[in-house]
């Protein structure tokens, strides 16, 4: 078949259009959030003293970090799904999370007596955290991979990893409402490891799922 023949066929197919990618991303994040919320309320739910905790800065800080992660990862994922967009410009914002966490950890090291640091760092929910953040984020990750498939990622593995990061951010936001370990030391360590699991899974699936 010659190229002009192919153009004839593509031209005749002009009317069949897929949904603009911008819309699909907003649908995806709403769907992913609903799925994660469902998993959260079915599996663990918020901690009993939620309303009291909501007045403490350590508790609120968890949401600042996780929501910042959601915003940045979502922007980055959208950019990665469009060929030829400026990825680097958005990717720089990823340093925001280490900066936030680093600052909070430094403050925590001053505030907490040194003989209690290990106790605070280890907390009492390590395994709960490592289990339920990935579990809550799993459905969200599947939604984002499907949206990625609708897009055209020229770096599918990286895009899949960022899909995992976004799913992890959403899952961690919900999980933070359950967990009673509010120390930045705990968050910086165990949340990161739990989210990294989803990132790795996303990277593995991205290469297979988002092929086009």
């Amino acid at each position: 078949m010659q190229t002009n023949d192919l153009i004839n066929a593509l031209r005749a197919d002009a009317a069949k259009q897929a949904m603009p990618l911008g819309y699909s991303w907003w649908i995806a994040i709403v769907a992913a959030t609903i799925i994660a919320a469902g998993a959260f309320f079915i599996l663990i739910g918020p901690r009993p003293d939620f309303t009291v905790a909501a007045h403490t800065p350590r508790f609120l800080f968890k949401f600042i970090v996780t929501l910042a992660l959601v915003v940045v990862a979502f922007a980055l994922l959208r950019v990665l799904s469009r060929p030829g967009s400026d990825v680097r410009h958005v990717a720089y914002w990823l340093v925001l999370m280490p900066i936030l966490l680093g600052t909070a950890v430094a403050a925590e090291l001053f505030a907490v007596p040194s003989d209690q640091l290990v106790t605070v760092w280890w907390g009492s929910n390590v395994y709960v955290c490592l289990t339920f953040i990935p579990l809550i984020g799993l459905g969200a990750l599947a939604v984002f991979l499907a949206a990625l498939r609708h897009g055209a990622p020229t770096r599918p593995r990286l895009a899949g990893a960022v899909a995992g990061l976004l799913a992890g951010g959403i899952a961690a936001t919900f999980y933070a409402a359950h967990c009673t370990d509010d120390s930045p030391l705990f968050v910086a360590t165990w949340y990161s490891i739990a989210i990294a699991g989803l990132v790795a899974l996303g990277a593995i699936c991205g290469r297979r799922v988002a092929r086009w």
């Binding site: 469009r82 055209a152 086009w212």
Partner: peptide, 29 residues
């Protein structure tokens, strides 16, 4: 490559932002 690219452009034309320049998008694909 020309034909594979045209086909990909066609299937993925909803990924083009209608206010963005076309050539970076075409070259990336």
């Amino acid at each position: 490559i020309v034909q594979e690219t045209l086909l990909a452009l066609h299937m993925k034309r909803h990924t083009w932002k209608t206010d963005a320049p076309v050539s970076p998008w075409v070259y990336a694909i």
